[in-house]
Amino acid sequence: MPRRTMIEAIRDAMDVSMGRDERVVVFGEDVGFFGGVFRCTQGLQAKYGKSRCFDAPINESGIVGSAIGMAAYGLKPCVEIQFADYMYPAYDQLTQEASRLRYRSNGDFTCPIVVRMPTGGGIFGGQTHSQSPEALFTHVSGLKTVVPSNPHDAKGLLIAAIEDPDPVIFLEPKRLYNGPFDGHHDRPVTPWSKHELGEVADGHYTVPLGKAAIRRAGSAVTVLAYGTMVYIAQAAAEETGIDAEIIDLRTLLPLDLDTIVASVKKTGRCVVVHEATLTSGFGAELSALVQENCFYHLEAPVARVAGWDTPYPHAQEWDYFPGPARVGRALIETIEA
C-alpha cells in the first residue's frame, strides 16, 4: 500500500472527493494556483479548473460565509482557513450560521461544509500559528469537530467529513503534516514513510466520524488524546513503562463515549491530554464525562495535562508544549494515587 504524508493524504481526500462529486469545491487563501501554504491543495486547480478550486480574498468571514451560501445552494464546499489561529473573524459565521442553519430553518436549508484549519503547536509558531481552538467549536451545538492524527485517518475522516450532511470543523495538526512527533524535539523526526499509519489506500474510503481508535491497548490507565498528543502519550507510556491504554478520539463531537467508558471501567484510571489551554478546554468536558459515567470504577482523580493558561509563547515552546515528560509524570501520579 502506498505511504503518504498527512499533507498528501489530505490532498488525496479532496482529489478523490472532487473526482466523485462535482458539487465539491475547494477554496481559501493561496489554495488555488499556488496549492496552499502547506501544499495541501497542490495540483487541484490544474486538475479540476478554477471553478472548482480557487484563491480567496484574505477574509475568513467571507470564506466561510460564502461557503455557507454555496452549501445552501447545493454545493459541498471544503474551505481552508490558513491557520486555526485566524478563524476568529469567521467565528460568527461558524457558530451562528453554519451550525444552526438546518435547525433554524427546520431542514429547509442545510450546510454541508467542511472547514479545514491547520492547528496546534510544537513548531515555534508563537502566539498566532500554534493555537488549538477545538473547545471553541465543541461548545457550539450543530458543529462536528474532527482532529486526525495520521495520514490514513486524515484521508478517511476528511472524505467522511466532505460527505457528511452537516458542517464539520476539520483541525489538522500541522506538527504531524510530515511525520509523527513524540515530543522529543531534540531528536530527528521520522517521516510518515517509516510509519505504518502512513499507509494510505488509493481511491475512496472513509473513516467514520464519531468513532475513536485505540492506539495502544493497556490495563493500567486510560489516556484520552487526539492529534499530536497521541504520540506524546505513546512516548510517555513507553518511557515510564506504564501499561496505558491510549485512545485517539479522532472526532471530538460527536464523541465516542462508549469506547472511553469501556476503557476507563477496565483501567479505573484516566489521564486527559491536549495542547490547548487547560481552563474550560475540551479536557474539562472529557474529565466530567468520565467522572459522570465511571465514578464507581475510578481509583484515582481524573488528571489533565494541557497547555498552560497563557497565550502560546515563542521562545518557551518546549516549556509550554505538553511533552512526554509532563505526560509521563501525570501517568505515574495517577497510578500511584
Binding site: G65, S66, G69, M70, A72, G74, Q93, Q96, E97
Partner: peptide, 16 residues
C-alpha cells in the same frame, strides 16, 4: 451575515 452568504449562493450558481 446573510449578505456574504448571498454572494456565495450566487457564486455557486455561476460555478454550476
Amino acid at each position: 451575515t446573510q449578505y456574504i452568504q448571498a454572494v456565495g449562493w450566487a457564486m455557486a450558481s455561476a460555478i454550476s
